[in-house]
Structure formats: structure tokens, C-alpha cells
Design a protein around this nucleic acid. Structure first.
Length: 415
RNA sequence: GUGGGUGUAGCUCAGAUGGCAGAGCACUUGGUUGUGGCCCAAGGGGUCGCAGGUUCAAGUCCUGUCACCCACCCCA
């Protein structure tokens, strides 16, 4: 048997209903903030991701599904959405049509990682981007919108963490200071991972999980001591406006995002009880990215929300009751059963017939199992009288209805 | 890439010391010549993940392998 690929999953009801709920809520909440839905390709040139996410990041170096097409072009399935949205924004010259653009997109992403709880190789994100504003109000508004969205999904037991990474110049200074600090540490004290990170991506040592490393970093310089006046003002404005909207948050000085393009405000929403992969959403400002990818110098800000992780927090049972179940008891009732099924659907009634001749007992058992409200029994007797026995499955009452009434669209007996 | 755990019926899982492959749920049929839920009875379902090995005999012991889960890493 051919089996699905590792880290790829098949979704069936009732699980899929939770995804539909998330999507419906996004389409309901985001337009309140004047966000418009966009659809962009799943496959892009690898270079797009390498340039925007960062050549040295793990995502680019070892987590992309990359391959060459028939013409030898190097392509990758998108590991995240922002790069593609930015590319589309530039390529379609959206900046020339409007000064501020607000987009969201929903769809699958792909990363070649070892699967675990809350992490699949194909996973799904709700993604939000704003272009054209560097106002801290926008940062705050987007975070509020995210919290509003989560609230509507009844996801309340979460912690919002925020931080500022500073702009490119203050960040550079900080990285130097951090590097100096790390260089003074004894190599033997660091865990294996941090020894590598120290060289490769110093910012990342800060959220190392080893308690020993964490103790060492207690006295490390923090980014917030290094950010410039403008960045400081921006960050405190974000905090103030969040407070005005009664959004609780904690400042996590150790919150560094893994993708190179983030600047200034970064944030993450963390949930408990869903395993080690506890970040359900994360994002931040990326002011230099549009320019970096060949567009005008337009600032940007956005977040991604992991649907697989949201799904774990959603308790929801969809009761999709069936209105009518058609039960043919004899072979020559099939034609009329077929006809009646369609007549019911014309009247917006959910109806099902299996076109299986069975005993009334078997039919009614099945009708009960699938949650039908009414069962239409069609047997020898009914055909003789041109009637149908309609049984109300919740009251047990049943009545005889003329077949011609049904075919004429008279369904008053269903009340 | 690294470490740990688990693979037995459609599902959840029992099967000490090797000796006829099991339960509950689900499914089908019957208990009412044509009436669901509750109850009762019967029935259908298995390459015990796969491949070797040890043994008179392997779901059980040994070796290898694959798959899934969890964690590290990384990230949403």
C-alpha cells in the first residue's frame, strides 16, 4: 500500500471542522480591520526565501523542500508566507495603488523537520501583513486584532510576549556587545548547541533551554539597553496602546525571532498544554524587507498563526444533523426514493438515500445513527397507496403522506 | 540530524515464566411476516509492523529493519 509522506496528514471530520471554523473566524474578524484576503503561490524560487528569511537560518539551510524543475530552476515549497506576499506586493506594484495595504492569506506551508506534537511537515497558517506604515499604532492594532481573533475562537488561556529587536543600526551594536560577552564565557561551560550558536547566530543563545546556559546568560546585555531613542519611543508607544486596549502582555527580553527580517517590535503568543511547540502565533515588524527584495522602501509588519496549534485549543462539536433519510424497503421503491431525495434538496433539506434495500429495522437503526430528523419509509404498502410513511425520529410519531404532495413540493408535514 | 517510547481486529487495548489469537466499543443479522435508541443473542472480521534467527513449538526470546508518537534542535 502506498502511504502518505512523513509529516503529512489526512484531515477528516470532525477535525477538519475545526480548521473550517478557524478560517471562517479569520474571514469574519480581519475584514473588521479592513484586511483583504489574497492567494499566492505555494511554490517559489528558492532564492526568494534565502534572501528574505536569511541564508544562515535553519529554515533555509535545512528545512526547505527544495528541488529543481525540468528547466533546472531551483524551487522550494514555501516554508512561510511573508516572503511570497512581499514578492507579490512588489511584483504587482500594489504600493503604487495605495499607500497602506492590509492583507491576509490562509494556506499550507512546508518545512522538512522531524514531526512532533504541533509540528508537521505540511502545516497551515493564517498569515497577516501590513505594508506602508511604520506607525506603532499599526503594530498595536495588529496585535490587538490577533488577540481579538483568538478570543473569538475561545482561546483565552494564552500569554502574549513582546520585545523589540531595534532597528538595523542598534541591533548591530547590540550584537557586537553580545558577542563580546559570549566570547568572555568559558567554552566548556556552554552546551553543545550554544557553542555553535555563539558563532553562527548569537541572538539565539538567549532562548536556550539548558538551565545551565540560562544561568550564564543572566548577566548578558539585553537588546532593550541598546536600542536607539526612536526605537525606544516606538516600543513604549506599542506598550501604551496595548494597555489602553486592555491587552495583557509580558516583555520577554529573550524573545528573538528566528527569521532575519524582523526589526523593532516582535511578539509571540504562547499557550499551555499543547506540547513543547507552544507558540501559537508569532510575528513582528520587518521594515527593510520590501526594499531588500527589490521594492521601494516600504515598511511592513505581520504575523503568522499556526492552525495545527490552534486546533489543539479548540473544543467544538459541530452537530450536522440530517433532515431526511429515505428508506427504500423494496427494489421497485428505488426510483421514487431517488426522485424524492432530489425534491427535498430543492427545498434546502439535507437528505440522504443509500439506495440499499433493507429491513425497516436496519434502515431506522442507520437513520438514528446518522442523526436524521425524519425517516421516509417506502415499501410495498406505500407504493400501493401512492403514499410514504414519514417518521419523526425524535417524537416517534409517524404519518402517511401522498407521494404526489411531495413531488409537488408540499412539505408542510415536516413542520 | 540526536535521544526515548510504542507497533496485536475498523478503534481503544489485554495477552508473567514460549504451548489453540482475546476483551470492550464499532459493524452485520436476529429477538417484532414492516419500525430506531435501551436490552439480549448470534455472526463477520487478524500476515500479532516487516525480515531473518533460536526452538518440537514464537504475539512472547535474539538480531536487523520499517512506521508512528514524544522530546532535543528549530519554529507558527
Amino acid at each position: 500500500m502506498i502511504k502518505r509522506l512523513k509529516g503529512f496528514s489526512d484531515l477528516f471530520p470532525p477535525e477538519v471542522d475545526k480548521y473550517l471554523l478557524i478560517e471562517r473566524m479569520a474571514r469574519e474578524v480581519f475584514p473588521l480591520y479592513n484586511f483583504k484576503e489574497v492567494r499566492i503561490p505555494i511554490l517559489e524560487k528558492t532564492e526568494l526565501f534565502a534572501r528574505s528569511i536569511g541564508d544562515a537560518t535553519d529554515v533555509v539551510q535545512k528545512e526547505m523542500f527544495s528541488f529543481e524543475d525540468k528547466k533546472g530552476r531551483v524551487l522550494s515549497l514555501r516554508p512561510e508566507a511573508t516572503a511570497g506576499v512581499v514578492r507579490a506586493y512588489i511584483e504587482n506594484k500594489i504600493y503604487a495603488k495605495e499607500s497602506i495595504s492590509k492583507f491576509f492569506t490562509i494556506g499550507p506551508m512546508f518545512r522538512y523537520e522531524r514531526p512532533q506534537k504541533g509540528r508537521q511537515r505540511q502545516f497551515h497558517q493564517v498569515n497577516v501583513e501590513v505594508f506602508g506604515s511604520s506607525s506603532p499604532f499599526i503594530d498595536s492594532e495588529i496585535i490587538c486584532m490577533l488577540m481579538h481573533f483568538l478570543e473569538r475562537l475561545n482561546i483565552n488561556d494564552v500569554v502574549l510576549e513582546i520585545n523589540s529587536l531595534g532597528c538595523s543600526s542598534c541591533r548591530r551594536e547590540y550584537q557586537k556587545a553580545l558577542k563580546d560577552f559570549l566570547d568572555r564565557l568559558d567554552e566548556r561551560e556552554l552546551c553543545d548547541d550554544c557553542r555553535v550558536r555563539r558563532e553562527k547566530n548569537p541572538l539565539r543563545v538567549l532562548d536556550c533551554k539548558s538551565p545551565n546556559c540560562q544561568r550564564l546568560y543572566e548577566s548578558a546585555p539585553t537588546i532593550l539597553d541598546f536600542i536607539c531613542e526612536d526605537c525606544k519611543k516606538h516600543f513604549s508607544s506599542v506598550q501604551n496602546t496595548l494597555k489602553k486596549q486592555n491587552i495583557d502582555f509580558v516583555i520577554n527580553k529573550r524573545l528573538v525571532r528566528g527569521l532575519d527580517y524582523y526589526q523593532r517590535t516582535t511578539f509571540e503568543v504562547v499557550a499551555k498544554g499543547i506540547g513543547a511547540q507552544s507558540a501559537i502565533a508569532g510575528g513582528g515588524r520587518y521594515d527593510g524587507l520590501v526594499k531588500l527584495l527589490g521594492g521601494p522602501d516600504v515598511p511592513g509588519m505581520g504575523f503568522a498563526c499556526g492552525m495545527e496549534r490552534l486546533v489543539q485549543l479548540i473544543s467544538f462539536e459541530k452537530q450536522d444533523k440530517l433532515d431526511c433519510y429515505i428508506a427504500p424497503l423494496v427494489e421497485h421503491a428505488l426510483d421514487i426514493a431517488f426522485e424524492i431525495s432530489f425534491k427535498l434538496r430543492e427545498k434546502q433539506l439535507r437528505s440522504e438515500c443509500l439506495y440499499d434495500v433493507k429491513s425497516p429495522k436496519a434502515h431506522l437503526r442507520y437513520a438514528h445513527k446518522i442523526g436524521a430528523n425524519f425517516a421516509f419509509l417506502i415499501g410495498e404498502e406505500e407504493l400501493k397507496n401512492r403514499t410514504i410513511t414519514v417518521k419523526n425520529l425524535s417524537t416517534g410519531n409517524q404519518s402517511h403522506v401522498l407521494i404526489d404532495d411531495i413531488l409537488n413540493g408540499n412539505f408542510t408535514f415536516l413542520k
